[in-house]
């Protein structure tokens, strides 16, 4: 990085740290914070979408659909998320390849499972084995996002399901009295009004999601925990220009501070959002704002 970093063995104090903290490996570590933020940015809307689907399914009047919706919520909620993370990635990957295999290679005659091997035809591979490295990495990242979205979608479904039921009964009755159909009522009355009831649950979910991101390294993504563990470990002079002792505690302290700052910031922003959304709403908080203003 800096010109004076050519021979780190001669450096000490601040100069050494300036060089140490700007090695390619450290830059990768800093980049991993971006990976975490990117994961959050993509997962949050994806989970919300899945959650909406789950909640609508659970409300459905067709029994099998409502069973699927409720089972989805119950199973994911009953099991620790880490248990899902440990085998979802491989399961999803194999599932996708199996589907592509069925479509692309209908006349493939060999079995897909040969012993413990899972083999699909070359055209069904995801990504194709000819694809460049970044495609593979992006694919791995997207599978991780999907896994997160499935798990947190169940939580979001739960929140939205509750919020839909929290919309005052009188509103729905009024809509019926005006002759709106069930789907019209849902689109025009329930969905616009449910958000204020869902927001406390959703902001809680966002906090949980932030705190679940360190599990990313279980999904094979090189995230901040991966780098912190590697960088913090004792380094012998043979394999690095910057030998040092066991510094894992300091790296994890840095991660701790990062997460604390991030959750604190989120909390502040979400509080403001809640204040805005409750303005003029027929809820206790909305009433309190009205009184304070008057």
């Amino acid at each position: 990085m800096f010109a004076f970093c050519t021979d780190p063995g001669t450096l000490d104090g601040l100069a050494w740290f300036a060089c140490y903290l700007t090695t390619g490996k450290h830059l990768a570590f800093y980049g991993a914070f971006g990976t975490v933020l990117l994961l959050l940015a993509i997962t949050a809307p994806a989970a919300l979408l899945l959650g909406f689907g789950g909640a609508v399914a659970a409300r459905s009047r067709i029994p099998p659909v409502s069973w699927i919706g409720k089972a989805y919520i119950a199973i994911v909620r009953g099991v620790p998320d880490i248990a899902f993370f440990l085998f979802f990635v491989i399961a999803l990957d194999q599932g996708f390849e199996w589907i592509r295999h069925k479509i692309r290679c209908p006349d493939w005659d060999q079995p897909i499972r040969q012993g413990s091997d899972f083999i699909v035809c070359a055209e069904a591979k995801l990504p194709l084995s000819t694809a460049p490295q970044w495609v593979h990495e992006t694919y791995g990242f997207l599978v991780a996002v999907l896994t997160f979205a499935i798990v947190f979608g169940a939580f979001a479904a739960n929140v939205l399901y509750g919020a839909m039921r929290a919309v005052p009964r009188a509103q729905v009755e009024t809509a019926e009295a005006y002759g709106l159909t069930r789907s019209q009522t849902f689109r025009r009355i329930i969905v616009p009004q449910m958000w204020v009831y869902a927001l406390p649950g959703l902001s809680n979910l966002w906090m949980v999601l932030i705190k679940a991101t360190p599990l990313l390294f279980l999904l094979g993504v090189e995230d901040i925990v991966y780098w912190a563990r590697d960088l913090g470990g004792t380094k012998t002079p043979q394999f690095t220009d910057y030998p040092h002792g066991d510094w894992r505690m300091w790296y994890f302290l840095a991660l701790l501070v990062f997460y604390l700052a991030f959750t604190k910031l989120s909390e502040t922003v979400l509080d403001r959002l809640m204040t805005r959304l409750t303005r003029g709403q027929a809820t206790l908080a909305g009433e309190a704002q009205r009184k304070a203003g008057a």
């Binding site: 090695t23 390619g24 490996k25 450290h26 830059l27 990768a28 590697d230 012998t236 043979q238 394999f239 690095t240 220009d241 910057y242």
Partner: peptide, 17 residues
């Protein structure tokens, strides 16, 4: 694995070596 020097590890530049 990238964590087992000298067999395989990640060097200062963040690359496998």
């Amino acid at each position: 694995e990238g964590a087992y020097p000298p067999y395989n590890y990640i060097d200062d530049n963040g690359e496998l070596a």
